[in-house]
Write a protein that binds this DNA or RNA. Structure first.
Lengths: 146, 146
DNA sequence: TTAGTTGCAAAGGCTTTGCACGCGC
DNA sequence: GCGCGTGCAAAGCCTTTGCAACTAA
């Protein structure tokens, strides 16, 4: 019954299970990521601000980077936009990125397994992972809502 | 006999054909990109420095951005590394990026046409293009040459 | 107790912007 | 001649780093 995306269990449990110390900022950041599946550091900060005494930008970055290092979160870096973080890890899904507003949506991999995972010629590289990004315009921006 | 990647014709011809004015910095930047297929702004600057009187960082950025806007070049933004520019455009090839040193190599698309070009569910997005990036360690870095 | 974390402050890398002069067309 | 492009300078955004005090375990 365990969720692979660490989405249902208690934040504290998840954090500790990842081998990290449980602190208020970390718990708040994890909750923020659950509420905002593709949040930037700024958005996370805004989200945790009301819950903490003195939210600091660096603590947010620390928590986010620690999560990524611990395998709890995944870092997305849409070209031209600040980096985003998401909790879904290891399930081979891809992203739709709006070139106008930078919003991101998940798309499950076209093929079930790993479609483009094997380049025609690795050129000597040891491939760790393949990332597929679809660039386009989201419904809102297309509608002129900017 | 015309090259689609603007790789063989005179730099001036290519630049003007793109609707841009021909200037020394632009010609030098285009040549630099030809010599270094995946160059950063810094690398381009270093490359054009000897050829120009007073190479300025901004002129390089201007030229590069103009090229991208004119469809002459393509911008690559490997997460965590400065952006790179390449002249190959519109031929649906992808990239191998070294997570250690940031070096980039081209890989032709696995399938001839457009493999992952169609997401399972566009979520209302108007897709412009699909980008596939293979993250890994290049031969040099793997060998410990750092 | 003791190492890992926070918060504050400041720096850092990369890229863009503003404006006067000069050059391409 | 007109307008775009250059060069110089400075600012901007996002992210990281350094260090003392604190707290989770």
């Amino acid at each position: 019954m365990h969720a692979h995306t660490a989405g249902t269990e208690d934040a504290g449990t998840v954090i500790r299970a990842a081998g990290l110390r449980l602190t208020d900022p970390r718990a708040a950041v994890l909750d923020a990521l659950r509420d905002h599946p593709h949040a930037s550091a700024d958005q996370v900060l805004a989200e945790v601000a009301p819950k903490l005494q003195h939210p600091s930008v660096q603590s947010v970055y620390n928590a986010l980077n620690d999560f990524v290092a611990a395998g709890l979160a995944r870092r997305i870096e849409p070209a031209g936009h600040p980096q985003l973080f998401e909790l879904r890890v290891g399930d081979n899904h891809h992203h739709l990125v709006c070139t106008t507003c930078g919003s991101v949506r998940d798309v499950d991999c076209v093929v079930g397994e790993a479609p483009c995972l094997t380049p025609s010629d690795p050129r000597g590289f040891l491939i760790d992972e393949a990332e597929v990004t679809f660039w386009g315009t989201c419904a809102a921006c297309a509608a002129g809502v900017a």
